[in-house]
């Protein structure tokens, strides 16, 4: 048994190394003065300087962040409403139908979402650009928020709502004083997931972005198609740091709310 555990750890370590290897590789060569992703010639920060002085890139970064924050905020509101709607729907059948429709966008491949949204926006007459990208990101984030919030709602004992009503709370009190505080961790998780999905999305954006507007993923793609450029490496190092900061931040937020609020997380 013991040796089994040891092999398990070794195996895990190998998987771990493979998962991180490309990222380390990228960051390592971001300091290469040689200009290629092989033959490390010397340490330089030139690529970082190049990134920092790339105004076009920073506009795109700003676009990406704006889209991510806006779309995740709006989709969190919509998603919480959706979760509440599903939670409150009485008929089992209706609930299943709503859930199924909710999950369509989650299981759909990005290409389908992108292509169908492209048709949709063209039909409605929405110009491809900021608006179309924002709408798409909201659209595919909503079901994610729903799925993060709904388990929290279902975990909530229904007597909690009864208790609040019993103590004189009206529908609005029940929502703001009991339900929303209870599902706050789920809402945070949903918002965070929406944020990462939006920051990460390439395929859907690629379809609906048009010519003038670009996000980071799309920009990286078009640069990578032209071949290796170490400024992308430098950019990826910076993004990786940002990601880690986000994850740590999220980890602490969820820990904090877990301690102060929900305590008994299900095992």
């Amino acid at each position: 048994m013991r040796s089994n555990h040891k092999w398990g750890k070794v195996y895990l370590a190998v998987v771990f190394v493979i998962l991180y290897m490309p990222i380390v590789y990228l960051i390592y060569y971001s300091f290469n003065s040689g200009g290629t992703m092989h033959d490390f010639e010397g340490v330089t920060l030139d690529w970082y300087k190049e990134v920092l002085h790339d105004t076009r890139l920073w506009i795109i970064v700003l676009n990406t962040i704006t889209i991510a924050l806006l779309s995740s905020a709006i989709s969190t509101i919509l998603g919480v409403m959706g979760a509440l709607a599903i939670y409150y729907v009485k008929s089992w059948r209706m609930k299943q139908i709503l859930l199924m429709l909710n999950n369509v966008l989650i299981v759909s491949p990005d290409v389908i979402i992108g292509a169908s949204f492209l048709i949709l926006f063209t039909m409605i007459g929405i110009q491809l650009g900021f608006t179309s990208v924002l709408l798409s990101h909201i659209a595919f984030s909503v079901p994610i928020v729903v799925l993060m919030v709904l388990p929290k709602l279902q975990e909530m004992s229904s007597t909690l709502i009864d208790a609040a009503r019993d103590l004189g709370a009206n529908q609005w009190d029940v929502l703001t004083k009991v339900v929303l505080p209870y599902i706050t961790p789920g809402i945070f998780a949903g918002f965070f997931m929406a944020l990462t999905y939006s920051l990460d999305d390439f395929a859907v954006t690629f379809f609906v972005t048009g010519n003038g507007f670009s996000t980071l993923s799309v920009e990286i793609y078009s640069r990578a198609r032209q071949g290796i450029s170490l400024s992308i490496n430098a950019l990826s190092a910076l993004l990786f740091l940002l990601t880690i900061a986000l994850v740590i931040g999220y980890y602490f937020i969820s820990q904090k709310s877990a301690v102060s609020g929900m305590g008994g997380r299900r095992r």
């Binding site: 007597t159 009864d162 019993d166 609020g261």
Partner: peptide, 18 residues
């Protein structure tokens, strides 16, 4: 329920965890 002069002690207590 919120307009009635009765109060309930629930089986699972239904205390607000937050």
């Amino acid at each position: 329920a919120n307009k009635r002069q009765v109060n309930t002690v629930f089986q699972d207590y239904a205390l607000f965890p937050h």
